[in-house]
Write a protein that binds this DNA or RNA. Structure first.
Lengths: 207, 207
DNA sequence: GTGCTTTCGCTACGAGTCGTAGCGTAATGC
DNA sequence: GCATTACGCTACGACTCGTAGCGAAAGCAC
């Protein structure tokens, strides 16, 4: 997961079951204890492994929680709902559903906070969580272009900035709604948000 | 600040200078150490007070950091730049400037993460930070209505939902851009964001 | 099978932080 | 002066941290 040693063919291999058990135990501990009260010793007990085993695989609490939370985003995909607006609503609803889970709420914000002072951790979050989300934006745009709802971008640089802007707006709004305003990103909210975002992109893009 | 005892007229009064020193020391510690390595004992030493004095005034690290970060948002105001778009850009740039400061980056996300499992803490954040920001949205809308750029809302309930949506979109996008994407919310970005947001609100609102 | 290598579980350890209690002193209102 | 509260200081048990050391287990090469 984090210490790939492709050259090591000999010796006892690491238990993949232990990896899964530790990550699952981490999520369970996040639900029951939250970030601050989560200890690696407790995770080890829940996973049924020794504390030293956890430390051999992860450098610390930050990295462990990033990997545990990242698995939650594996299920994200772009559903084909027929139109760009409906596709976006579908993705946003999926994202909101993940953020509604307590293990994501507690863990995600905490590691982002830690990442403000740890470049390596931020890079790890980017690689295992953010990029996985950003891929959805690209996939959705490609599908919309195939449908003819969006024109093929002429300026590559400008298109990249637009994708980044969309991503920050979508992820940021859902996270803020869910975690700061502490109100559900339900279908009604997502519908209103998507309408503003899409008409804004259409108007500002044509202007 | 947090333990108002208006009935206590007798006895030695609490030093207001100590309050300010502790909050300033907390922000300094956030800059130098970040959230996870910040300890109340260290804050006490920096502030030049005894550790017990800190514990007498704040229940714990969470509450202390909320109050310390909240003071950063005191300077927020709605500048009169002549148009709704320019006003919004001004506010967003102010918000981005605060989030660019390390004591805000480290502290804000951490307490939001803790608040996912602590209703009292979330209420404290709402009262001392979020509401202070949301007031800007209301002030900006009032000024735009006075200018005639926005119509007076007919449906009060719908208007309230719109304000909440705008607030989540603005704050969420800036936070995500700054902390997750780790790129500056500079004038160029803010300009593009504001254009999408405003044209989206105009189109979706008229539809 | 025999070895070599690496992982595993377990125990123990010093270091550091936590939040609190106790004490004498300082500062205010009556 | 007296009651009351805040302050600085010290000390304390409890807890978590991350690491080291050990013997046993599980693979792979031969």
């Amino acid at each position: 997961m984090q210490s790939r040693t492709p050259a090591s063919r000999t010796g006892r291999p690491r238990s993949t079951a232990a990896d899964a058990a530790i990550l699952a135990a981490t999520r369970q501990a996040l639900v029951e204890l939250g970030w601050s009260r989560l200890t690696l010793g407790d995770v080890a007990v829940r996973a049924g492994v020794a504390k030293t085993t956890v430390y051999r695989r992860w450098a610390g609490k930050n990295e462990l929680v990033v990997d545990a939370v990242a698995e939650l985003f594996d299920e994200l995909c772009v559903p084909d709902r027929g139109s760009l607006a409906a596709d976006i609503e579908g993705v946003v609803l999926q994202f909101a559903a993940i953020l509604a889970r307590p293990e994501a709420r507690s863990g995600l914000m905490a590691v982002v906070a830690e990442a403000t002072r740890d470049d390596a951790l931020r890079e790890r979050i980017r690689a295992s969580i953010v990029d996985r989300q950003k891929r959805l934006v690209l996939a959705g745009r490609a599908r919309a272009q195939a449908r003819g709802e969006l024109p093929a971008e002429a300026d590559v640089d400008r298109a990249a900035r637009t994708v980044d802007l969309i991503f920050d707006m979508v992820a940021g709004a859902v996270v803020h709604r869910t975690l700061v305003s502490a109100e559900p990103a339900d279908e009604e909210w997502v519908h209103g948000f998507t309408r503003v975002l899409l008409s804004g992109l259409a108007s500002a893009g044509s202007a």
